[in-house]
């Protein structure tokens, strides 16, 4: 009874609830299990960092949420509950109405996300009129305000420009402005600062952080860069070989990682290493998605692996608000401490 109430309460504040998601790619080399049983929850207004190496399935997870996985990829199992509604198996038209309106996306390379042969105004106005019946000049007005809100100078002039007339950072601001046009409940950002210079990266992070906080938008920030997550996210989920191996509040996970992979990631951050010493690194490479070992996929690279690890490690809750998939977690207090 109490349990049920608790669940009701949680469900009502959850923006996104991914349950046991499987997204596979059928290729000639075999079936690639890009996403292999992912569970992830994002509350309203919460920023979650999804961290992993390239090929870990973090981007595919993001695309799966809004049904933009292209063939030969397809969602073969699980649920994506958005505001309580399961999006898996939804009609394409129903998904389209959600895209850009309730769930927006920002992509990695700002040089590639805007169509080079269409004006910025065209690309912004069409994003508005795809969901609302608005007069052209009103749509332009809104596009103008959106550009101003992300800090683009002279928006009325820049609207008439083409993407190649913007710098990379400015283009990413345009993309963010487009994503925010309809005040979506959730934004999925797929490595949006990776391609930018460090100084620009900081500016973009600040813009996103401010706007998301102002509007109470939930944010799923996909990245391979733990240091970005450290300054931005409330919670972090670490993904390895199609699964989330560890999840929890960002400070706790970074200070006291429990999964050996998380610990390895933190240890290999340059800022964590002392000058003059060798950079710590995780030995070996992530297994290819069509040829993963049984049990824990991290097993071949893990110093703590035992015979037990040949079984699938179940998801456990080692502490309040944290989850873990590991038989031999790191001893408490052994690794940690961001500088």
């Amino acid at each position: 009874m109490i349990d049920d109430d608790f669940h009701q309460d949680v469900a009502s504040t959850l923006t996104l609830d991914i349950r046991n998601l499987h997204t596979h790619f059928d290729t000639r080399a075999g079936t690639l299990r890009a996403v292999d049983g992912v569970n992830l929850r994002i509350k309203r207004g919460e920023i979650v960092g999804l961290v992993g190496e390239s090929g870990s399935g973090k981007s595919v997870t993001g695309f799966s949420v809004i049904g933009l996985v292209d063939p030969p990829g397809r969602i073969v199992g699980g649920e994506v509950r958005f505001q309580g509604r399961n999006l898996v198996g939804l009609e394409e038209e129903a998904l389209r109405q959600l895209r850009g309106h309730d769930i927006a996306m920002i992509f990695q390379d700002p040089m590639m996300t805007l169509n080079p042969v269409l004006r910025i105004s065209t690309q912004m106005v069409e994003a508005i009129t795809a969901h609302e019946i608005v007069a052209e000049d009103e749509a332009l007005e809104r596009a103008h305000d959106a550009l101003a809100s992300v800090g683009i100078p002279h928006p009325e002039e820049r609207l008439r420009d083409y993407p190649h007339q913007f710098s990379g950072g400015m283009r990413q601001r345009v993309a963010i402005a487009i994503a925010l046009l309809h005040n979506p409940a959730l934004i999925i950002a797929d490595e949006p600062t990776t391609a930018l210079d460090v100084t620009i990266q900081g500016q973009i992070l600040a813009v996103v952080q401010r706007l998301v906080a102002e509007r109470g938008t939930s944010l799923l920030w996909i990245t391979h860069d733990l240091s970005v997550v450290a300054g931005l996210a409330h919670r972090v989920a670490v993904m390895y070989a199609g699964r989330i191996v560890e999840e929890g509040p960002v400070d706790e996970v970074l200070d006291h990682p429990m999964h050996p992979y998380t610990a390895g990631l933190i240890a290999s951050l340059p800022s964590h290493n002392r000058r003059g010493t060798r950079l710590a690194q995780i030995p070996g490479m992530a297994p290819p998605a069509h040829d993963r070992p049984t049990g824990c996929s991290f097993r071949p690279r893990c110093a703590r692996a035992t015979a037990e690890c040949e079984q699938d490690p179940p998801a456990t809750t080692p502490a309040q608000g944290r989850s873990l998939r590991c038989f031999n977690p790191m001893p408490a207090g052994s690794q940690g401490g961001r500088a």
């Binding site: 933009l68 927006a104 996306m105």
Partner: peptide, 9 residues
């Protein structure tokens, strides 16, 4: 992809 993510038909 971005155009599709904007919800265009």
């Amino acid at each position: 992809r971005f155009a599709r993510a904007k919800g265009l038909t």
